[in-house]
């Protein structure tokens, strides 16, 4: 399986561009930060994971696109309003981590 080179903040574009479900929490958080940085066209270092995405200008419908990217990255179907309900990188990463963990077959972790 391929994994996003999170350091360079490459954005996942293709359906085939899926990460391993076994990705660790830090990776997921870093990937999300990179993703958000791309949306905002800002360096990753400027993205504070505790700041609300809406405060950065990621408005309601715009944020829905991010949800599509997360779905593609994790190869999971998610609630479309996920990014509204978990409005910071930290909250989103924590929630996704739980979802991914719940998907792992017993004993896989």
């Amino acid at each position: 399986m391929t994994r996003e080179p999170t350091k360079t903040g490459n954005h996942p574009r293709k359906e085939t561009d899926m990460a391993s479900n076994a990705e660790g929490p830090a990776d997921l958080r870093a990937w999300l930060t990179g993703c958000v940085a791309q949306y905002l066209r800002r360096p990753e270092t400027e993205i504070d994971p505790t700041v609300r995405l809406a405060d950065y200008g990621l408005d309601s419908v715009y944020a829905l696109a991010l949800c599509g990217d997360i779905e593609t990255h994790l190869d999971m179907r998610l609630s479309e309003t996920l990014v509204w309900d978990y409005p910071t990188v930290d909250e989103l990463a924590a929630h996704l981590e739980e979802l991914v963990a719940a998907q792992q077959p017993a004993g896989a972790r």
Partner: peptide
């Protein structure tokens, strides 16, 4: 559409 940069999708 597939080639759009996410930074292109905002207001």
């Amino acid at each position: 559409g597939a080639a759009l940069h996410p930074g292109d999708l905002g207001v």
